[in-house]
């Protein structure tokens, strides 16, 4: 099955990004396809490479990037939401790309299921 995932919160204040990450990983482990993960609202903060979580805590920015690399995932950060929050190419973590909101609708059209994670 083809999944699309939307992440609406950043990596610290809410559990949403953690839940989305575990969901994506479980879907891939089961042999499903994850077409695209779209980061919207404060979710764009998941792509901020300047973020430095404490050493004993999980680093979702890195984890997303690694999962993306391992499975060749399309990690898309919404440009309008990103600009508002100061997320630009120069601080974009590895594995992410910035694109338009059309990519979310496209994922919704192409995927068998689109699942939203937020607060």
């Amino acid at each position: 099955m083809k999944f699309g995932i939307m992440v609406n919160e950043g990596p610290f204040t809410h559990q949403a990004s953690d839940s989305a990450y575990h969901f994506a990983k479980a879907a891939l482990d089961k042999g499903h396809q994850v077409l695209r993960i779209f980061f919207y609202y404060d979710g764009v903060n998941n792509a901020n490479k300047l973020s430095q979580p404490q050493a004993d805590d999980r680093n979702l920015i890195k984890l997303w990037g690694e999962l993306g690399k391992e499975h060749n995932l399309d990690l898309v950060v919404c440009v309008a939401a990103a600009l508002r929050r100061g997320i630009k190419e120069e601080i974009l973590a590895e594995g992410f790309r910035i694109s338009g909101l059309g990519q979310l609708i496209e994922a919704g059209v192409a995927a068998d299921r689109l699942v939203v994670f937020g607060d």
Partner: peptide
């Protein structure tokens, strides 16, 4: 909160895809 505004932007984009 900002949610209402950003959802509106998504609605408008979906029109471009004729969904």
């Amino acid at each position: 909160t900002i949610y209402a505004l950003e959802v509106l932007e998504a609605v408008l984009i979906s029109a471009a895809f004729e969904q």
